[in-house]
Design a protein around this nucleic acid. Structure first.
Lengths: 233, 233
DNA sequence: CCGCATCCGTTTCGATACTG
DNA sequence: CAGTATCGAAACGGATGCGG
């Protein structure tokens, strides 16, 4: 089996030997949200040949990016989950997403916004290095077509920004929903329109595209984190 | 011309539409160090077909990652240089390199350490988020086979770590070499051996693989930034 | 249905040879 | 030096089949 390989002594080349093939990083992207089964991945990876998904998954198992495991809850089935090494690709995916935002444009009928892509998109849109001090819990209730995505972005309490207390974005179940300093209602597209400068926050609010609720301080922090203020013309 | 394209409304997928093909990110890696001409790239990208390099470069020009320009200094020739959008890939390359380090192993005869890869490698090896306070100028004088690579890693003076004052690693010309707090002599392989835990800093020093010179504080900071202390067993 | 495997036409890649 | 041209090999995309 002659697998293609960059024959260079270089960490980037070594990384691309493992994740450089077509679809591999998009599989990681999906598994970063949650473990998924084969057919979930198939649905998400439109345009990928079914056999190719099977090939990639075994390659990724060989490269120790992914494990296939059997779970009983909520119903018995096999799922693919990231290993520690696979999760180590999260920073790569976030930086790729940041690079890709200016190329994104707006959703269309053929390429609609999908609810599964909201969590990673929110993380990538947030500008972590310039976090304001203090604790901030944001709750996003975004209506994506048929699905309501509820997510909490939380910066843990703490004086200094340690690497382990990075902001996290996670789905929130109803029963353990944290107290929120800000609630964002609307849609991902609304956030994108504002970021692109197509409309500003007030206009979006008036048109019902995006509404923010919370204390003045928390709203300021949110606008800062997500760049929701009108860019200087 | 049916170009392959992930048909998804997703910033990561959009990014991979532009940089996901084979060799593209390795070209960016090389151009991040300095503009290069066609034949420089050919030498660096061993194993790449020459026609494919030409194809990639025009694709990358179309995608506004690269521009071809004519320069007169030091001698008249055409070079390829990154655009702003191309340089925006630097964080992606750094994260990929960080992911790839554990897969790197040690240089061999077929895959030797190349001097051109030292600067990006040093940046990726450095652990930026945990920078100690204060100013620190490190000078690396690394002997890679036939070439002596001299580089300065400098953290600008300043109280807080602002995103614009990230640590930079740049080649240092003799005439504008800054004062250094630490001088590291040896080779990249020496650094890697220490990081892999194969030998410790003292042993490397005794065997002439790596030597550090500088004040006690600066040495402590350096060992911290580059993880040169023996990992807890 | 779910989780693949097989087949086949098309696209991309790698190696080498060749040109202005 | 800076690319083109050519061609066989590998990878990909799409459809279809098939056992559990």
């Amino acid at each position: 089996m002659p697998k293609r390989d960059y024959k260079q002594f270089c960490p980037t080349a070594r990384a691309l030997n493992v994740v450089g093939e077509r679809w591999t990083l998009l599989i990681v992207r999906d598994l970063l949200i949650a473990p998924r089964r084969y057919s979930d991945l198939r649905r998400s990876l439109t345009g990928m040949a079914s056999n190719l998904l099977a090939v990639r998954l075994t390659e990724m198992e060989d490269a120790d990016l992914v494990v296939k495991k059997h779970i009983e809850e909520p119903s018995p089935r096999d799922v693919y989950a990231l290993t520690d090494r696979g999760r180590a690709l999260e920073p790569v995916l976030l930086e790729l997403a940041r690079f890709g935002f200016p190329l994104l444009g707006m959703p269309t009928d053929e390429q609609p916004m999908m609810a599964e892509r909201v969590p990673l998109g929110l993380r990538a849109m947030m500008h972590e290095p310039e976090l304001p001090a203090g604790r901030l819990v944001i709750r996003f209730a975004l209506d994506e077509g048929d699905q309501l995505v509820t997510i909490a972005a939380q910066r843990p309490r703490g004086q200094r920004l340690l690497p382990t207390e990075r902001v996290t974005v996670a789905a929130v179940e109803d029963h353990d929903r944290p107290e929120s300093d800000v609630v964002v209602r609307g849609s991902m597209a609304g956030l994108l329109w504002i970021r692109e400068g197509i409309i500003d926050l007030d206009a979006a609010n008036e048109q019902g595209l995006l509404s923010l609720e919370g204390s003045e301080d928390a709203l300021t922090a949110l606008r800062f984190l997500y760049r929701l203020d009108a860019p200087a013309a």
